[in-house]
Design a protein around this nucleic acid. Sequence first.
DNA 1: TAAAAACGTTGACTTAGGGCAACGTTTTTA
DNA 2: TAAAAACGTTGCCCTAAGTCAACGTTTTTA
Lengths: 189, 189
Amino acid sequence: MFKLLESYIKSITEIDEQSLNVIFSKFSLIKVRRNQTLVDYDEVCKHHYFVNKGGIRVYTTNSEGVETTRYFAFEGEFGTALPSLIDQKPAFEYLKTIEKSELLTISRADFYLSVDQIPAFALVYRRILEKGFIIAQKRIYGFQGFSAMEKVIWIKTNQPNFLLKVSNKMAASYLGISPSTLSRIKTKL
Amino acid sequence: MFKLLESYIKSITEIDEQSLNVIFSKFSLIKVRRNQTLVDYDEVCKHHYFVNKGGIRVYTTNSEGVETTRYFAFEGEFGTALPSLIDQKPAFEYLKTIEKSELLTISRADFYLSVDQIPAFALVYRRILEKGFIIAQKRIYGFQGFSAMEKVIWIKTNQPNFLLKVSNKMAASYLGISPSTLSRIKTKL
DNA sequence: TAAAAACGTTGACTTAGGGCAACGTTTTTA
DNA sequence: TAAAAACGTTGCCCTAAGTCAACGTTTTTA
């Protein structure tokens, strides 16, 4: 049950068995169906999620109903509505499963308690933030001022199996182009 | 010399005088002219900067020479080519002053040593990352799929004096629109 | 397992906004 | 402080990509 999480943590830092078990004891496994809402638009996010199986997506919709996807987390990755988790303000975004999934959840309280009490876990959180930050920056540079085709080439280079893992529609909403445009571009590559 | 930095730290966490002085001892003040390069495109970033006076900008240029601005830091804020500082890879972006400035610099080594040794400073770093992450996310949602006019309205709402502090050209490169378009829109608002 | 809904693809049409150039103004520099 | 460079604004033109609709296919659900 904690195998993936264990190797995730150990890929970041050395850690003794005791600390590891304290951390594990804070997580519980939930099995959820596809398209399950984990955080709703107006909700304040109260959990961090680690994907054991399946995948989750963070996205929002504008006034005309157009979706913008901010983040995907797949097997072996953490994901949550992080801005809301940090500030405890309404998320203004959705966190949902994109397929039938098995998730390890930890409450916000336990998460930050562990960050404060277990140095190794503080480092894990630091890496989550650093990685999230870097990805976001790359995305700004990778997308801003790029043509639709350049974006698609960029994502194929930087996350090769991204286009295979998510639907056309979701990929388009991540890239900030319309599904029709993405469809047209894919035939040309 | 450390007044601004002191209130910055104290706005984040309580801290004893001794720790504060240890931190201060790692920073040195530099006075730099406008348009000074602090990190060059191919360079690995080795310092974190705190702006005492003036302002700095992080940006890159694509193959056609078009600039994209990722971040500004003004008085009382930290700024650096953070992805490069974290990973110690070439920045692929520029860090430059946008006006005559006074900066407190701390070396990467001292910065992370302080993060590891002074809990209050670890918290400061955590907030830098959290804030950077949240701003980047907001920017993705605020810009993706928005029209040029919506972006300008967005920035006026979220950072009211942004358009007053930076040049038209830099503002445009931050918003991801052309200077001409920004110019045209401003007359309509 | 059959009906309904969502999705992907493609064609025809429309438009936001970029490129370029001109020109006056401000800023920089030597 | 004078020449040069950079900047902001505006007009004209053009194209990338969005919208809408149609239709076949896949997925969902009751």
